[in-house]
Amino acid sequence: MTPAGAGICFDGVGVTYPNGVVGLRDVSLDIEPGEMVVVVGLSGAGKSTLVRSINSLVPFTSGEITVGDVAVSGLRGKALRRLRSEIGMVFQSFNLARRTTVLNNVLMGRLYAAPTWRTMLGLWPASDVELAMQSLERVEIVQKAYANASELSGGQQQRVAIARTLAQQPRVILADEPVASLDPPTSHVVMRDLQRINAELGITVVVNLHFLDLARRYGNRLIGLRAGEVVYDGPGADADEKVFESIYGRSLTAEDVLDTPARLT
């Protein structure tokens, strides 16, 4: 029943923040429906700006972004909310409401479709609850459905956040450094969840990552950003040390990898 993934097209996109800082500079990209793309770059390179412009959390100031067959520029009100309802978003800091249940958090993925009066009374349709439960099952955390979000570990919270996007039945999932607050083993669990969702449901996935070993491992396609510009676009497996040094604009350090050699031996 889930609609197939949507393609994302950047056509000469630029983002200049109100304070004059340039976030993106003339970015042109074609992301195919059902593709999984990893975006890497130093802190401040424009990774967040890139993914946030796709659902217009950050408005772009030039060019055009097309999601599926919808042009994003100029969308407002209901039309913008409709687009956002088809794009799930996963955040570095999980962004759960901590004092309510896991189930209620996942149901927030249904807010676009839910009538206001039902939301006010907290009366969710049984079909939405069922969808939320299935989403929790897909990330294998359904047993926590009635626990408070604050009782969960970081990795569990991030999987709940992924379930929340699944409850949207999205065509695209955007993940902005989803593992930056997690330890290495948990990072792999979350990345594998995203990979599986991409493969099984055909949802287009765009993930920002900071660590180059994660990026190579999970990025079928890797996009390197530097100072708001695309400086690499190709298979993750082809990205060697030289490529990363050109993306980062400096030689590599221990901070650039998640799994240090000591951990792996």
Binding site: R84, I87, M89, S93, N95, L111, A161, Q168
Partner: peptide, 13 residues
């Protein structure tokens, strides 16, 4: 405001 941001990003009013 994390939860609110997520809800708005999911198309909620």
């Amino acid at each position: 405001r994390g939860g609110q941001e997520a809800a708005l990003a999911a198309g909620s009013g």
